[in-house]
Write a protein that binds this DNA or RNA. Sequence first.
RNA 1: GCGCCCGUAGCUCAGUUGGAUAGAGCGGCUGACUACGAAUCAGCAGGCCGCAGGUUCGAGCCCUGCCGGGCGCACCA
Length: 645
Amino acid sequence: MFGTKKKLKEKIIARLSPEFPVGPAEVELTSTPDQKLGDLAMSIAFPLSRKLKTNPQAIAAKLAELLAHLEGVERIEVAGNGYINLYLDRKQFFIEKFSNLKKTWLEPEEQKIIVEHTNINPNKAAHVGHLRNACLGDSLVRCLHYKGEKVEVQNYIDDTGVQVVEVVFGLMELEKKSLSELDRIPGKFDYYCWDLYTKVSRYLAENPEAQARKSVILKKIEQGLSPEADFAYQVSRRILRAHLATMKRLDIGYDVLPCESSILRLKFWEKAFEQLKKRGAVQLSKEGESAGCWVMKLDDNPEKEKIIVRSDGTVTYVAKDIAYQMWKFGLLGQDFYYEPFIEENGRTVWISSAEPTPYQVHFGAGSKVYNVIDVRQSYLQKIVVQGLKSLGYLEQADKSIHFSYEMVALSPGSLAEIKAELSAEDKDKAFLEVSGRKGLGIRADDLLDRLEKKALGEVDKRNPELPLPNRQKIARQIASASVRYFMLKYARNSLLVFDFDEALNFEGETGPYLQYTAVRIRSIFRKFEERFKASYQDFINHINPEKIDLNSLQTAEARDFWELVIYASGLDEEVLRSVVSLEFGGLAKFTFNLCQKFNSYYHHYPVLAEKDAKLRTLRLMTIYFVHERLCQALDLMGIQVPEKM
RNA sequence: GCGCCCGUAGCUCAGUUGGAUAGAGCGGCUGACUACGAAUCAGCAGGCCGCAGGUUCGAGCCCUGCCGGGCGCACCA
């Protein structure tokens, strides 16, 4: 559809521009509210009527006359009080789309795009809030790939921050563990730390004097002194492995894991600081509350200033982030060293190192950067961008995108299910924010386990003849699809109140519904091969699309066929819209609607049972067409199609 | 106090730079499995789009004010 519109638009402008003041900005082809009103609509007559001070209907009639006999357009009508509706040449359209199923009209625009997502503090298990981040980020990556962009996926690891420090504090001071005992802690280490982290938070709240001991540990970790730094290293690496394993369950992967410890040891900040000072982007505050600190003034509010370097010379989180952001754009004049961390499906995931390594790989230096971070960080992200601006990197500041989304909260029902202990104040709220510190959260692996268990039960009922490993694989695919669709279907600005009943539903607008639709189409393909003793793919490849006869279709079927075809052709546009708006709800909705339309079609028109060979072939082509588009859409959402369901 | 976001059906949410008759899912009520798989489909009920003004050919969408809710505004990350 994207390609069709693009071509049509050019032709329309060529026809109209000699007589009317119209250009690419004015001519907009939109869909009609009803198929009866045509396939594409233009509302250009309305703005023109204002400019030319005549009534819109008269202008529309004139325009329609100029547009008569456009290639690919069967007829044009003026409708309503001035809409111009285009009816496409259906056969030509279908043949073109059918013959170019693997092709996209979208084109890459950037040299290299960096997408940073997941970014979980390596001190506890991943929870549902992190899943939203990773699912959004991964779908963006997939859509950018589809568009033809070169993409690098980064997952930033804050392995020296206070969150890790608190777990180290817990291990050393509360649990009295030695470094060698760490490896021997049984079970899921990320779960162990989940509990330990809340225990430490409570301890620190009750024993304020312990803060000093914690600060000592923090300093030692930042300076790389043992054994504290070794503890932090062990803890963060082991939990990082757990996080990557969790994300792998959702088919989410990464190219590189830049670590804060590397940023500190390679002195990235010092390089950034020099540039900032030279440019006057930061000033040494002489008076007031911030005396002795290096601060950055805010563009939109000169009264306010943000502290970048503390009076004791240590750097804040934003400072490190500015340096990191500069590195992403290749503005630091320095790179990390790298070593392989793990291998996933034949893809190496690299991790940063402060020491030279034998590996000649390089990351960063993107032309555009997306940071997938929740909305609460908007203020800090703005400061990071301002840092780039005040250094004179205007283009980079412009292409430094904060992909923000609202947080995940828990419904009262969900809180009851995890047996959360709530304060009197929290009990009255309609929902509660996920909090690792309080231990309030649904762990990602717990959710996936529950979904898999439920899915396996359903698969067992329907496909008892399948071997257990197959059924388990299907259950995993269903659980993953369920989570991914759930995380994508909401607009990113809307607060997601997590509820088990909704998340565990496999019916209606859910991931499994989409999978089920694809499975049923494939089931027809399989039956075709059994019945006709021929490869379905070969059959499709040998069809001559020119020979199809759409006029032989009954009125209702012609309508339903066309609706399905034209809707399925909207994928390219939907992907582009997702990438531009960073909203994936539209893509999710598109896929769901496509499935609904197909399921309805499927109930009305038998395919294999159809006696008329020509009609059967046309229906086979139709469902093949839908299947291809559907699978592309599913892949963009990271949803796999099970062999059976 | 300042800034950002949200308010649409009983519930959870869509609504494509302002466009034609505001849509889904869940829940409720009717129906449809000897069929290419019922994790499905067909249908019914359910709406002062928070409230009040304004802008215009046209407003759920834009502007102003108000009401209700959330999140930011640290020498925390």
